[in-house]
Design a protein around this nucleic acid. Sequence first.
DNA 1: CCAATTTTATAGCGATCGATAGAAAAGGTG
DNA 2: CACCTTTTCTATCGATCGCTATAAAATTGG
Lengths: 196, 196
Amino acid sequence: MVTATRGRPRSFDRDAALDKAIRLFWRRGYEATSVRDLTEELGIGAPSLYSAFGDKQQLFTEALRVYDERYGGFIDRALADEPTAKGAAARVFAEAPERYTRRDLPTGCLIVSGDAGTASTEIIEHLRRIRDSKVDAFAAKIRADIDAGRLPAGIDPRALGRYTMSALTGLAQAARDGVTRAELDRVAEIALRAWP
Amino acid sequence: MVTATRGRPRSFDRDAALDKAIRLFWRRGYEATSVRDLTEELGIGAPSLYSAFGDKQQLFTEALRVYDERYGGFIDRALADEPTAKGAAARVFAEAPERYTRRDLPTGCLIVSGDAGTASTEIIEHLRRIRDSKVDAFAAKIRADIDAGRLPAGIDPRALGRYTMSALTGLAQAARDGVTRAELDRVAEIALRAWP
DNA sequence: CCAATTTTATAGCGATCGATAGAAAAGGTG
DNA sequence: CACCTTTTCTATCGATCGCTATAAAATTGG
C-alpha cells in the first residue's frame, strides 16, 4: 500500500522499528524497557515513536501481537498441524529449546516473562489471558483425543494442558538463566515423559 | 540480647518490618517495589529504613535470605529429610501447590520471580545463583541414588534435577497467574510422572 | 540537671520516568 | 513559487525514582 499522502514522509521503516522494539521488550520486559531505551534502539526521537505507535503500552501490545505470530507461533502451529495432542506436545517440547536459545535473539519467551515486575494490571492481565488461551487450546485438543479414544478417559484435559504450558514456562525461564540448548533438549525430553 | 545502648531507641520491630518487606518484594518483585511503598507498608520513614537495613538492594538481599529459610525452605528440607531423590521430588511436588497459594501470603515464589523486570545484573545474578544451587542439590542427590543403584544408570542427573526445578518454576508462575490450589495439585502430580 | 548518642520526622537532592508543546524541516498540491 | 499537511528535532513538563542533609526528639551516662 503506497497511498501517496501529503506531509513530510516518515524517515524510518515502521515494521523494522517494531521488530527492534519487540526484541528490546523481549530482552528486558515491559517495565525495564524505558522510552529512552526504545528511542535509542530504534534510532528515532520520542515524538516520532509516539506518533507512529501511540504510547508505550500500545507499542507493547502491538509488539506482543506481532511477536506471537513471528516468534512464538510454534505452539499454535504444532496444535494445528499435528493430528494428536501428544504429537503436538512432542513437537512443542522438541522445538522449544531451540526457540528459546536462538542466536541473535533474546532468550526465553516474551509472553512468559514480558510482564515481569510490572505494576500495570492491564499488562499483566493481557499476558495472563494469552497464556491461559494456550492452556485452553491444548486442553481442547486433549479432550478431543479422549473422546476419540486416543487417550485414556481417566486423565484431566485441563491439568495436562496446564502441565504442558507450565513445563514450557519452566524451559523459557531456564533459558533466561543461561541454561544451554543441549541441556534444555534433555530437560524437554524428560518433560514429555509425564504424558500418558 | 538486650544490650543497653545509648541514644534514642528504635521505635519499630526490625524483624516484623523485615517480614513485611519480604511479603512486599514477594508480591511485586524487586523493581516494582519502591522505597516509598516500603516505608508506607513498614510504617517507618525513609531514614529509619536506610539506617536499619542499608539501601534497597541490601534490604532485598536480607529479605531473600530470610525468605529462603522462612518460606521457601521446603525444598531444602525435602532434600535433607527424604532418603531418596525421587522421594524428595515427590514430597516437593506434593507440597509446592499449597506453598505457592497460601492464604494471606503472596502467590508464587520470591526466588523464582523476584528479579523479574529488573535492570540490575547483580540482583539477577544473585537469584540465578540461588536457583542454580537448588538444581545442583537435586542433581547431587540423584547422582547418589544412581551410584547406589536406586536409579537407572542411563539417566542424566543434571537434566533431571533441572527438570524438577524447572517444573517447580512453572508451578510458581501458574500460581501467580491465579491457578487454583486444586488445579496445581493435579499439575504437580503429572509433573512427578516424568521421573523414572 | 547537662552532655553524648542514636533515631526520628521534614524536606529536598539529582536523576530518570513517560509523555508533549512548539517550531523547523520535508514532502505533495495548487 | 506559495500553501497545506505531516514528521522531525529541541527542549522541556510534572511525577516519581533511590537516597540523604539537617535538625528535633528520645534515650543513657555522668
